[in-house]
Amino acid sequence: MVETSYYILLSASLFTLGILGVLVRRNAIVVFMSVELMLNAANLAFVAFARQQGNIDGQVLVFFVITVAAAEVAVGLALLVTIFRNKQTADVDAISQLHG
């Protein structure tokens, strides 16, 4: 049996990697992928805690997270395609029309 804290350590590391990706990368698609990485890290923590508590609710929540993530990716990528059609770029710095 692997300690729950090991899973939490891995989850925390993956989550911070996702934050780093969002902050560092300028390509909107890679930023999206980093968000997915963070969601996955949260899922891992959910399942680890569900095992620790001997409770299935954590797994049900992961099911919800995955479903919402799928919807989010579909809409987000559709937005990206629309932006790319208008701007010819996926660079998040180029999308600054609301900048004063």
Binding site: V2, Y7, I29, F32, M33, E36, N40, N43, V47, A48, A50, R51, Q59, V62, F63, I66, T67, A69, A70, V73, A74, L77
Partner: peptide, 24 residues
């Protein structure tokens, strides 16, 4: 799978590794 949740293992592979990665 190591955490005793084979259902989420299958979901992760089909939804994440399958559907979402294809979209990306």
């Amino acid at each position: 799978l190591l955490l005793h949740s084979p259902f989420l293992f299958a979901i992760q592979l089909t939804i994440y590794a399958g559907a979402i990665m294809v979209l990306f």
